[in-house]
Structure formats: structure tokens, C-alpha cells
């Protein structure tokens, strides 16, 4: 077993444990922390696959910005006053069974794929910042700029939604 494989299994186990932690935690703040662990594990996978740019972006955007936002919101809302009402046990069971079914079916479907045993090539420089950046600012410069517009509109939307309404709430 090579180092890569050992790391792969470790990171995979970490990601799965983190994911289970997210869905089983009582307090959302723990969920946020578990999710950060998952993101870090996924970033580790990116590094393993020699996709450094995405690994970094993942940590900055997800583990950094997004999870900070989550943490902020969780703290903003005082959930101790309103503990989550647990779902009906049947609904819960149905959810878990549906998830398991999906898992089984997807695995069954994909385990027969002919290219399952294709090796990944991680020795190329495709995932490097230099190559990706060049492509991004040559071929994808217009979508990139448009995504800034998307951010702007998302920001405006968030501000408008989050604005306190002047006693018009019902």
C-alpha cells in the first residue's frame, strides 16, 4: 500500500465520519465544525489528486468564507431558546432508508461501469494554479467577470432579504 493509498483511505474515513457527524449532531454549531472537517478532508483529496488550485480555493471559499458565514448565522440565532423539534421517527426512518436505497442503487449502477479501474493520472500539471489561471483568464474571462455580477446581485439580495422591515411583518 503506497502512501497515496494510505492517505486516501484516511482522508476518506475522515470525510465520511465528518459527514455523519454533520447529520447527527444536536447543536448546529457542532455540525458546522464537522462540516469544516469534511471540507478539509476533501481539500486533502484535491491535493492528493494534484489539483492544488481547487484545494486552496476550497479551503478559502468553503472552509473559510462559507463556514464563517454559517457560524455567524448560528450564533446570530439563539437556538437554545428554540431547540429543534425532532422529526417523526417514521419520517426519519424513511429518510435514512431512502438515502441507503439511493446509495445501493447508485453503487450497483456504477460498479458495472467499464472504466471503473482506470487509474488517475496525477503527474500532469493540469491542476496547477499557473495552468488553470491561464485558462481562466484566456478562455473563461467572460464567465469569470459575469460571476462577479452574480456575487453583486447575491449581495444585494442578501442585504434586502436581511433588512429589518418597518413593522410590516405579519
Amino acid at each position: 500500500m503506497t502512501t497515496t493509498q494510505i492517505l486516501f483511505w484516511l482522508l476518506s474515513a475522515l470525510a465520511i465520519v465528518g459527514a455523519i457527524g454533520v447529520i447527527s449532531c444536536k447543536n448546529p454549531i457542532y455540525g458546522v465544525l464537522w462540516l469544516i472537517i469534511v471540507f478539509f478532508a476533501i481539500s486533502g483529496h484535491y491535493v492528493l489528486m494534484n489539483a492544488q488550485f481547487l484545494a486552496i480555493v476550497n479551503i478559502i471559499v468553503y472552509a473559510g468564507a462559507i463556514m464563517v458565514l454559517f457560524t455567524f448565522v448560528v450564533m446570530f440565532i439563539n437556538l437554545n431558546e428554540h431547540p429543534e423539534i425532532p422529526k417523526n421517527i417514521y419520517v426519519k426512518a424513511a429518510g435514512i432508508i431512502a438515502g441507503l436505497c439511493l446509495l445501493i442503487v447508485l453503487v450497483a449502477a456504477l460498479s458495472r461501469a467499464s472504466e471503473n479501474n482506470t487509474q488517475l493520472r496525477i503527474d500532469t500539471g493540469v491542476g496547477l494554479i499557473k495552468n488553470l489561471g491561464r485558462t481562466l483568464f484566456n478562455d473563461y474571462v467572460v464567465p469569470f467577470e459575469i460571476s462577479s455580477v452574480l456575487f453583486l446581485s447575491a449581495m444585494v439580495g442578501a442585504v434586502i432579504i436581511g433588512k429589518k422591515e418597518k413593522q410590516q411583518t405579519v
Binding site: I16, V91, G95, A98, G99, L100, L103, L106
Partner: peptide, 13 residues
Amino acid sequence: IILFCIGVAGALT
């Protein structure tokens, strides 16, 4: 797939 299904199960439960 496992991660995705865990996400689905969480969203459902």
C-alpha cells in the same frame, strides 16, 4: 456516492 447519500439522508431527516 457515500458522501452524497449521507447528505441526502441528512436533508431528509
